[in-house]
Write a protein that binds this DNA or RNA. Sequence first.
DNA 1: CGAAGTGGGCTTTTT
DNA 2: GCCCACTTCG
Length: 894
Amino acid sequence: MDFLSGLNPQQREAVETTEGPVLILAGAGSGKTRVITHRIAHLITARHVPPSSILSVTFTNKAAGEMRNRIGNILAGVGMNGQPLLATFHSFCVRLLRRDGDALAPIRPGFSKTFSIYDDDDQLAIIKAAYKRMGLDEKAMPYRNTLSAISSAKSNKETPQDLYNRATDPRVTKIAAVFEEYETALRQANALDFDDLLLETVRLLYHDAETREAWNRRLSYIMIDEYQDTNRSQYELMRLLTQRHSNVCVVGDEDQSIYSWRGADIRNILDFEKDFPQAKVIRLEQNYRSTKNILEAASVVVANNKERKGKWLWTDADEGDVLTIYPAYDSENEALFIADTTEKVLRQHPEYKVAILYRTNSQSRQIEEALRRYNRAYVVVGGTSYYQRAEVKDIVAYLKLAVQQSDSIALARIINVPARGIGKTTVEQADKFANEGGISLWDAINHMLETNAFGTRAHAAVRVFRDLIVELAEAVERLPLNEALAFIEERTGYRRMLEQENTPESQARLENLNELMNAAAEAVERGESVADFLDHAALVAQTDSIDANAQVTLMTIHNAKGLEFPMVFLAGMEEGLFPHSRSINSEAAMEEERRLCYVGMTRAEKRLIMTWAKYRRRFGGGEQERTMASRFLKEVPSNLVINMGVDEDDVPSVDLSSERQFVRDESRKNLYTGKTYNSLENISAFFKERGINTTLRPSSPPPAQRSAPPAMRPPQAPVAPRQTAFTRPPVAPPAPPQVSDDLPPWETGPSKSPTPITAGRPATPVGTRPPGPAPVRPIGPPPVVNRPPMPPAPVQKPPVRPAGQQMIRQPEQTGLFGDANSLFPPVQSKTTLPKAPPSPKSPPRTGTVVEHPKYGTGTIVRREGEGDDAKVVVIFQRYGMKKLVEKYAGLKKS
DNA sequence: CGAAGTGGGCTTTTT
DNA sequence: GCCCACTTCG
């Protein structure tokens, strides 16, 4: 079989150069994955390399899984003797240590192959405990800082003693002390953290010649993807594995190095030619992904960096659309714009996948709310992943403890969950005892029970707990994993606790636990052990959960690395947010931000829209603060972009105060899984990834869940009347009945806006907030947000994200992409504003029964404000409570 | 002991 | 807005 056809000459060379060290400098979208998969296929078929002699290391499990699929596809007809090893560095290390870890025991006292893996939650728990014992103050020395100091010391192979010796200020001395406690705790629990997985593997291979030789013999071809983001220990691992041969092929792009904060060392890629002087360097510079405009814009931006080898990608593709920059008034407007534009684009291109990318996870919330407002299915990658959820971690902690009682972190986590009368004091006593004796919490508890060291009440409670764990341990020995989990959930009372709580949240948690058992059942079917299951739970990364079927995906730009989408939004392009304020003082950090921007931009195949908000709240409660456009926006050549803002102060806006409230309420009601909604897909996807079948659940629920009962919808075509308000004809019509939040954007100038009132406007301020200046419309259509009607109070939904296609048809219109011929319809008249109807002479009082043209009969329950601004809160018989601007509402006494 | 409530303080990015 | 530590009250 020929795996060379269809490749360009450079790609072909990369595939054919199988012997000796190879450095592939692969620009964004240059067919890197294709090269790797074809290279593996070529090795197997043309060079007759046994598949099991090939190791290919990727950055995420997701990437590994995808690679597995692709290789499976292209080698479908080929009889293979074994499988190539496709792994992340971390999963490879776990595998190696679980297999050959015995040799490590002499070097790392207390180590055994049954080690557990501690994730950052577990790490944090250790740090907190250490702080408490040592009387340290979190405010003076944040946990996170300490943790990252420890992590970077570890990656430099420093011991606590080393850190202590080089300490120049008392803070570092304290960190060294915490570090020591931390290391003790890990060893005590026979646990490894993520750094250890790599470090201990390196130590094992370094010290134990036999293991090293064995792996060197076994793996004769090694490929490493995303090489620019490897760290020191990964580099050393690579060296140790390539001692017998130097058939190592690394693939990377220095412009896409975005993990230096995690210890990634860009020198690894820059110095590869020094490490291997005979290395062959191959450059892949033809981009197959993006339009010319996108590629050029991204290239110009990243060219502002000084620390780079410098390369210029080219493409045969068409120019495509120009990029769009949308300056929103505030972050809510930004979110609504994104949601609205997504709808329009998907209506025109139902086959598109849309990615909404941002710098920080916290930006997702408002965008999610806006998308939900449109009933648009979406997947959030990141935030709290499935295995990070408290309930899952709790049950997993029971499982870990049942398997290995020395896991003190697991024990501390669940000793009183559900509450069983073991209070803080009791736990502290045991913890103290354990620490002084250098033993595990479990041993401490047992010892204290024997010696009657607890009070009577505590003694009884702890005893019950101890017996419980013993019972669970037996059950885990005896039962298949899924049944063991069910047993744990019953026997510990955890399930009962959630059932009794009986809130939407607890229901969702129960669902998550069910899903955990499903995953366990599937693992059992595949013949996996408990240890395998726990390893997965620890190593599954958030990126691994990306659902390829989801049409709209939200994630950080970091998470988007390696992915591509026809349509990409980059949100929050503001100074201080992106580039992030923490990077603004360092040139190197700024360059990394710029590379991140490059990564984000080059994810886009066809359309790229970058948005920013002129005002943004930094914290939930605070005031909105003025922002500045990101410098990266200014680096984009102006001929490649349409900027929808004319000048800084002239910003379109959809400012909808009660909309906002509504959206918030809705999202609160639907808040069954916290921040993310990928939990269920996530877990099955991950566990299936190992098997052959990676079909994911459909991301849309059955139609029944999507649509509201018709009876509860507003009587007429839902959007049309509101739409009139947005596409107001030049001559002011009689003011339509309006809900206060329905004011078109250009009438709802927020009071803080510095814009002076434009000449020619009605003297009376229009809008809900005086002195509402009406920002003049810039070019382009109004950032119309077609809102579906208020749905009824949501029915309790299962914790599958309420999803599905847009259920409400929106009127045809020439929107941002509505017209295939012109990106933007003609500029609209900006001078016309509706005249306000005269205010009623005697305002209706609270309690008055009124008639609304659309909502029917209701009762006024509150009045707010005076004059043109007056708002009334009315409870309608059929539509519930609404806040209306009196002068627009068209209320009649009945 | 433990649920529930208060108040202060911050939000990069994640294998 | 959300998390976390701390307080209060049953």
